[in-house]
Each structure stands twice: as C-alpha cells, then as structure tokens.
Amino acid sequence: MKITLTVNDKDKVYDIEPGEFLLDVLRRNGFVSVRRGCDNTSCGVCTVLFDGKPVPSCSLLAVKANGHHITTVEGIQDEADKLARYFGDEGADQCGFCNPSMALTVYALKQEKPDADDDFIKRYLVGNLCRCTGYVAQHKAIQKYLGDDS
C-alpha cells in the first residue's frame, strides 16, 4: 500500500506493507540516522519526532504515520550541531550511536519546556539509553544547551 509522509518537510509517497514499522521504512529509504537498537521500545535509539513529539519508530506502524510530519536528526541540523558542541565540551560523547535520538529528544524537550529543571530533564530522558557515558556529562551539556538562546 502507499502512504504519504512528510519527512523533514519533504512530502513523498512511500510503498509499505500494512504491518511494517516506521523504523524499517525510514531506513530502507536512506534515513539511516534512525538507528535500530533493541527493536522493542526499550532503548530509544530509534526515536523520531512525530508531529513534533518524540516517539519510538520501531513501534510506530508506518501506516499510522500517513499524512503526518516526521523529523529525523537531519531535520534539526542546526540545533543538533549546537547540542553536539556542548556534548563535545562536556565529554558527553563516545561512540555516537545514541546521538541522533538524544538530539531529537532534547530538541523536543526544549520546545516543550525551555526552562526545564534538572528533574524534568532526567525524567524526559529516561527512555534514551547511552551505553558509553554515565549520563552526568550529557546532563551538563543539555543544561547548557537549554540555556543557549542564540
């Protein structure tokens, strides 16, 4: 069957199977920044923005996204670059596998609550696992990113 997705502000018709998940459709069509991790909603590395809200693409049926806006990290490039600089400054980055999903989730957090306190940040990022760092450096980087209005 065919669905229309607006991925990073570009409309396109995609050929899918009715039982296919968005993660598979996106990766098959070249959006490989959307990572495959646990494939069962537990790790968060497949996160994309669905009409601006973070969702796990491994568990979102592609057909359900028909007519909706999907954002991958390429769609927020400037903000992702800015966050990446803070990650670098704080030593919050190692293998980089979780970075695209982390950037999208932090971007959504900033849209939802730009003045988020520590507890809100921690709770918002519960679903984004990073196996390299201990989260402390990431947390510091995110605090600085949220305070940067440039």
Binding site: T47, V55, P56, R123, Y124, G127
Partner: peptide
C-alpha cells in the same frame, strides 16, 4: 509518569 520513557507515552 512512571511508565518507561516520554516517547513511548507519546505513542
């Protein structure tokens, strides 16, 4: 609010 992460609760 204790169910997994924000992303899964958006879904």
């Amino acid at each position: 609010s204790n169910i997994m992460g924000v992303a899964i609760r958006n879904l």
